[in-house]
Design a protein around this nucleic acid. Structure first.
Lengths: 343, 343
DNA sequence: GTTAGCACTCCTTTATATCGAGTGCTAAAT
DNA sequence: ATTTAGCACTCGATATAAAGGAGTGCTAAC
């Protein structure tokens, strides 16, 4: 329904505004070499595009800026898959040649690199521990009253939690308990741990362990480890350099929201797999009204594992960021699969 | 060398400026009930105080604000130990009645509470793991190539690191190794672990373990766990509400510096035990020129363990924050001692 | 259908005046 | 010898006006 000329003009306006952060006027447009019509023609087209809801004015006699609907259209229909800079490719590859084995460190480093590459804020939702399979449970008594339970997963993730020992429990009891748990629970995904314990292990335990009841409740409580994925951030302060955030109160709202990990977690988590773009109010959070969030998922083998996100102003370099995220999430998946899939 | 009247005037000026963030003039001072002289007299005294370096003007005809030297004098000589609000006392106590056992969580929660109570940024330097004593080492093989080493300390802190297994190593070898390590190293402070391994354990290991060399290097590398204390933050964005940080570039510098954990670590770490106040340039970091940092140390039993810090503008409520930190660090020490000293 | 021309809008910048809180200094009062 | 009243002066903050410029919408000519 848009003519080719309108499409061209619209695209040039968006590209120009993304670069300059300044409203784009008809005169400056007419000077671009890809545009051959007079400023008056452009003005007419711009008026139409505004009527259609793709463009806005900041005041009656200003140039045009893209509206949210405009960005949405731009992202959905006008984005040509951009070839990545070799410089970017190298930066990304560089992480994966560093010999890091811990999943968490790889992920943290990813957030850092992505923020440096984009100058936006990078948020990486860590590996979904809940889907990891139990490799080993260990219990280390610290003194007569407390012990520490350690859970190791097949991806090398370690969770630990302190708990109270019932009075008078014996170290041989603990040993027995640990053996039984490992025997019965190895290979079980963490998210099913609780259920399995009640269904399959409780009975066996009761037969073998003295002072079973008090011990059991302590332990079960402990195994309810919050298996929420962790968030990793990079470039939290990058937003401060964006001209749209010169207003201190806007910045404060945004940064406060970023610090609030639970909210952030929900916002990142609920994105489906693949690349996803949320523009301005689509984020459903007033602090993010002037922001866009681009997410990509990564995986180990066939399991969807986590999410990478870039948070920038709505006036974001969509094309570049999307290419970067596609490339990055893919490489990350490959590397992680290689590292941990080798059963 | 300062007369009583100068002292009085100076104190009132500092208190007023801390409250209002506005330069204090002679007229408004003369209206305070604790001050009985005319504005002209006050002007003379203020001129003297300025000559002595305790006060400054923001421009030729402005009121006075305290200089850094002034704040220093104020902190060193004019601070009356303020009684804490019962509201504050209760807030602090509330953390310690929550049944949290993990050291890290207590510490994280502390940072949060302190930032809420002060409206400044709270930074807590976590327990000094390096002084913790080894409770147990465990090694969990994940697959043929990698294993994960887990170190538990007497305070319940858990460190873990992945490492590569030499090809062809046997699970009985690993078991032997772990047994020897635990036998010889239990009770050794983490910071001495490396030395001990070379001096006392290497020989024994060589006798018992096949494929010793490759295993050993892998493991030793692994035990060089970065035992740097972790930093915990609360209220990172609180600075944005302070009028002195209305300037975006100042904020950006400060927040970027806060994000940069290594620098922050050094700044917090090098404070001696007890309460410490660093004002403005004393911090030795240009991003903190308009900030003051108040630190207090906490401990488990007799060991100095960590540091709590409050970062605010130089125009900070020194009296209140110092009282709060004294009280808090003391309570924290008591609680931690109770929790972990019960050998 | 396109474009040149023009009046109009509104932000930005610059200049100018005014106000007021504050100072330093001098001279009178205590 | 202090203290204080008085006064000229400074300078930031605020308001107002004027000029400039980038941009628009509309009309009429191409």
């Amino acid at each position: 329904m848009l003519t080719d000329r309108q499409l061209l003009i619209f695209q040039v306006i968006v590209d120009d505004f993304i670069r300059s952060a300044q409203p784009v006027g008809s005169r400056s447009l007419s000077k671009k070499e890809e545009i051959q019509f007079s400023s008056a023609t452009i003005r007419n087209e711009m008026a139409d595009l505004e009527e259609l809801g793709f463009l806005e004015k900041t005041h009656t006699s200003s140039g045009r800026i893209p509206s949210e609907k405009g960005y949405r259209f731009y992202v959905d229909h006008l984005l040509s898959p951009q070839k990545l800079d070799t410089k970017d490719v190298n930066s990304v590859r560089s992480i994966f040649t560093e010999r890091i084995y811990e999943l968490e460190k790889i992920v943290q480093r990813s957030a850092q690199i992505l923020s440096e590459l984009t100058n936006y804020t990078a948020i990486v939702l860590g590996p979904a521990v809940r889907e990891n399979k139990l490799k080993k449970i260990q219990i280390v008594p610290l003194n007569d009253e407390t012990a520490i339970a350690i859970i190791v997963t097949d991806t090398g993730h370690v969770e630990n939690k302190m708990f109270h020992l019932p009075i008078g429990i014996d170290s041989s009891d603990i040993e027995k308990l640990v053996n039984i748990l490992n025997e019965r629970l190895t290979g079980v995904p963490l998210e099913e741990l609780n259920g399995k314990i009640y269904k399959e292990v409780a009975l066996v335990l009761r037969q073998h362990i003295r002072s079973y009841d008090s011990m059991f409740s302590s332990l079960v409580e402990t195994l309810k480890i919050p298996t929420n994925e962790k968030l990793f951030f990079g470039g939290k302060t990058n937003m401060l350099s964006q001209p749209e955030f010169h207003d201190i109160s806007k910045v404060k709202n945004l940064l406060t929201m970023i610090e609030h990990e639970e909210d952030m977690y929900d916002i990142i988590r609920k994105n489906p797999s693949g690349i996803n773009v949320k523009i301005g109010k689509e984020n459903g959070n007033s602090a993010m009204d002037d922001c866009s969030l681009i997410t990509a998922t990564y995986s180990i083998g066939t399991e969807q594992l986590g999410t990478i996100a870039i948070l920038g102003p709505t006036r974001m370099e969509y094309s570049r960021v999307i290419s970067l995220l596609k490339f990055f999430s893919n490489d990350l998946s490959v590397v992680l699969t290689k590292l941990y899939q080798s059963k």
